[in-house]
Each structure stands twice: as C-alpha cells, then as structure tokens.
Computed example of a mutant assay.
Amino acid sequence: MTIKKIKLFIRASRPFSLTASVIPVVLGGILALKEPNFNYGYFILSIIAIVFLQSSVNLLNDHDDFINKVDAKDSYGSSGVVVEGLLTLKEVYLSGILLLILGCLIGLFLVYNVGKPILILGIIGALCGYFYTGKPLMLKYRGLGAPLVFIIFGPLMTLGGYYLQMHEFTLQSFVISIPTALLTTAILHANDIRDIRHDKRAGIKTLSISIGYKNAQKLYSTLIIIAYVFLIIIIIFKYISYLSLICLLTVPAATKNINKLRAAEDSSNHIAELDKESGKLQGQFGILLILSILLSYIL
C-alpha cells in the first residue's frame, strides 16, 4: 500500500472528529488516576480500541451515505474519498469492518481481564456504531443520531473508562461526562443542520429536518450553553475542582460558533465547516477539563 493510499484512509477516518471518543474515555480513566492500582496498560488499550471503533464508524458511514445517496458531489458531510473516486466503496467498507473487528478484539481482551460490564457497554457501543447508518436499523436516518451520540460519546464511554480502573460505576463519573457529551452532540447536530437540503433530497429524516431549521439553530445553541451551565453546576456541587473553570476559556469559540449559525439564514455554504469548528471546541473544552482534573491532584 502506498503512502498516498494510507493518507486517503486516514482522511476517510476523519481524524478531526476523534476527540469525540478519545476525550470521554480519557476522562473516565483520569478520574481514577490517583488510585494506587491504576492500570496504564488498560488505559492505553481503551484509547486505541475507541480510536479504531470510531474510525470504523466514520468509514462505514461514508460507505452507507454514498449507497443511500445521502452524499453527493455537492454535499459536505463525508470525507469525500468515495464521492471523488479516490477510494472504492469496497475498500472503504472492508477497512471499516477491519477496524471494527480490531476494536472489538481489544474490547474482548479487556472484558476477559475486567469483567462483563465492559462487555455490555462494548456491545451497545459496537451495535449502535454499526447500525448508525447500517441496515436494517439505519438509526441516523430515523432521527436518532443526536440522542445516540449523546449517550455513546458521553456517559457510556466515560463510565467504561472509569470502570476499567475501579470496577464500579459512580455518580461522579456520570455527571462529569455530561458537558463534553453535549458538545459532542453539537458536532453531529451542526453536521445535520448544514446537510438539511441534501438529506431531504435523499429521503432521510434527521432530527434537524424533523424540528425545522430555526428550531435546529436554537437546539445547537442550547446544547452548547447547557454544557457550560452544567459545568458550573458540578463545580458548585464539588464533583470536580474549581480549577475546571479554566474550561470557560473556550466560551469565545463557543460564542463564535453560535453566532455563525445564527447568521447563516438557512444557507449551508456559510456553515460548511461548522461541524469541524464544533469538533475543535469540544476538543479544547475536553482537554482543559482533563488538565484541570490532573492539576487538582497536584494542588
């Protein structure tokens, strides 16, 4: 395989979006870092597994969206490798299945060493990932994309990352997952808002189509605002340290994204990059949240 081909597969995996899964898993692990029995091997393997699994979902999503005529040359949603003829449908599908298998194999190793709760979480995540756009469920096309992303890329992954280390679920690990889960959901929602015209043409039904453009705009703003409000609430109730107020440094970026969408006036051209910008916001917020928790162990 040539370097050029490898770069195309990397492009198809959409690296900019991988913070959506890496951050909640790291967050769950970091919450247990101060414990004497912290297992760095499990921590690293969980990150590798989740990168494989999300990359798999992104590849399979490209395949399914092209098959179902959601992606076309004038649309924005995919990585573009299939639409532009850079990779074949078969190559994208098989690479997605391969990464899914590799992610599941690592997951099974962790299940064997940690226990059945990880198996349950893994099965839920893998099935939802495959059937996100895969037949017969095609969950995204039935308007279930946003709630699924919130659950999987929020509580599910953070609780899983924490359980790998502590062999228990806690309220703290659940509530701390909420702000980043909301911001991750905003990434998908930005994508869906931008693609309303193309998705309607393809005959699918996303949440943005169901509630209409104006309400979808309001929902995007609400997801972001609630993320910051919830952060302050869990700081007040001492689930995390006041040091996590450092996450408020991302408010200007959040405000910029909200204002850009409000000014778009139903024009996808003006928000073509909003999903990537929302991904950057989630990544910056998540990294600052993780750093603040690490600092709280030292100070």
Score class of each variant (00 low, 15 high):
Thr170Trp: 12
Gly129Pro: 02
Tyr141Glu: 09
Gly160Ser: 13
Ser177Lys: 01
Thr170Gln: 10
Thr206Gln: 07
Pro136Asn: 05
Leu139Cys: 03
Ile123Val: 15
Tyr162Lys: 02
Asp199Ile: 07
Ser210Thr: 12
Phe174Lys: 05
Ile224Gly: 11
Ala190Glu: 08
Lys140Ala: 15
Phe174Asp: 02
Ala202Lys: 13
Lys116Tyr: 15
Met166His: 07
Gly115Ser: 03
Arg201Thr: 07
Val149Ile: 14
Ile226Phe: 15
Ala216Pro: 04
Thr180Val: 12
Gly160Pro: 09
Pro155Thr: 13
Asp195Leu: 04
Leu139Met: 06
Tyr130Lys: 10
Ile123Tyr: 05
Gly115Tyr: 02
Gly115Met: 01
Ile187Lys: 14
Ile124Trp: 05
Ile118Asp: 00
Ile178Gly: 08
Gly129Asn: 02
Leu148Asp: 07
Ile196Pro: 13
Ser210Met: 14
Glu168Leu: 10
Asn191Pro: 11
Ile123Leu: 15
His198Gly: 09
Leu127Asn: 08
Gln217Trp: 00
Phe174Thr: 00
Thr185Met: 10
Ile187Phe: 11
Asp199Arg: 10
Asn215Tyr: 03
Gly160Thr: 06
Phe174Asn: 01
Gly143Pro: 02
Gly122Lys: 08
Cys128Thr: 15
Ile151His: 03
Ile120Cys: 01
Tyr130Glu: 09
Ile176Pro: 11
Ile209Gln: 12
Ile211Thr: 01
Ile226Tyr: 14
Val149Thr: 05
Ser208Lys: 04
Asp195Cys: 03
Ala216Tyr: 03
Thr184Pro: 00
Pro179Glu: 13
Leu119Asp: 12
Ile187Ala: 11
Arg142Ala: 09
Tyr141Phe: 11
Met166Trp: 09
His189Asn: 09
Asp199Thr: 03
Ser173Glu: 14
Phe150Ile: 07
Thr222Ser: 14
Thr222Met: 13
Gly122Asp: 02
Ile224Lys: 13
